[in-house]
Every structure is written in structure tokens, then in C-alpha cells.
């Protein structure tokens, strides 16, 4: 598989979930593990450009896939457009949900379609944030559509 542009190959235990593999084996701890049943969205990453729950995949299922985690989206001093918009709008407080939101938003923005705030609110409802009340998150994603 390819993770953030780097090739990785090796054996994994069949029962290891993808989020545990990313965190424990690759030490990419920016992928956060919340509910571990697909509801909270914290562990969302990009798999072949699509937002997927890394807690709802076995690592072995990612064989051959191209994965992007938060570590592959930008870095301090060189934030992605979306990350910069999140910062400008103060679209996070504790930050636990943020990597998942950024992955979901990356697929939404990648479609090239322009959505209304109402539509974005629906589309972002697959990620749970307990701090912000969502307003600044929706604003940040909305702004990046321009």
C-alpha cells in the first residue's frame, strides 16, 4: 500500500483494524480513534481519494490502496488550504475530531461541486464534534469551495 506517498509492504495480523495499524505500526497517531464503530468519524482517512472509516476496515483490506492521513495533508508552516481555513475560522477547540473532518471535507471539495451551507451541514454530519457547534467548520469548508 501507499501511505502519504510512501510505499509500505509487509505482513499484518488479519484481525488488525486499519486505524490500529496506522497508529501502532506506522506511528501515524494523527488518526484518532473514537467510537470504533463507525459513528463518530474521528478515524476518517482518505482511501484512494475517498473518505473511509479506518476503524471499519481491516488493515489487510487496504492492500494495494493509496491512503492519506492527516500527516499527509499538510505540516506546520505549510498547511493545506483547508487546514488554513480551519485555523482562520477557529474550526476546532480540542482538535480530536479535526483529522476526520479534514478527510471528509477533502472528498467533498474534491468533487468540484459547490454545495450550500445546508448541504454541507448534512454531508459533514458523519463527523461528530463536541466542542465547536459546527458553525465554524461548515464556514471553513464553505469558504474553500470558492
Amino acid at each position: 500500500m501507499t501511505v502519504n506517498g510512501s510505499r509500505w509492504s509487509g505482513d499484518v495480523p488479519a484481525r488488525q483494524t486499519l486505524c490500529d495499524f496506522l497508529r501502532d505500526e506506522l506511528e501515524l497517531t494523527g488518526t484518532h480513534v473514537g467510537c470504533e464503530q463507525g459513528a463518530c468519524g474521528a478515524c476518517t482517512i482518505l482511501g484512494d481519494g475517498e473518505a473511509v472509516r479506518s476503524c471499519l476496515m481491516l488493515a489487510v483490506q487496504a492492500d494495494g490502496m493509496e491512503l492519506t492521513t492527516i500527516e499527509g495533508m499538510g505540516e506546520p508552516g505549510n498547511l493545506s488550504t483547508l487546514q488554513a481555513a480551519f485555523l482562520r475560522h477557529r474550526a476546532f477547540q480540542c482538535g480530536f475530531c479535526t483529522p476526520g473532518f479534514l478527510a471528509s471535507a477533502a472528498e467533498i471539495l474534491g468533487s468540484g461541486r459547490r454545495y450550500s451551507r445546508r448541504e454541507l451541514r448534512d454531508m459533514l454530519s458523519g463527523n461528530v464534534c463536541r466542542c465547536t457547534g459546527y458553525e465554524p467548520i461548515v464556514e471553513a469548508v464553505f469558504e474553500c469551495q470558492r
Partner: peptide, 9 residues
């Protein structure tokens, strides 16, 4: 059905 992330898989 679920959220779009769920429908992706």
C-alpha cells in the same frame, strides 16, 4: 444509508 463515508465502503 449511513453517511457518505459509510456508503463509500
Amino acid at each position: 444509508i449511513g453517511h457518505f463515508q459509510i456508503r463509500n465502503r
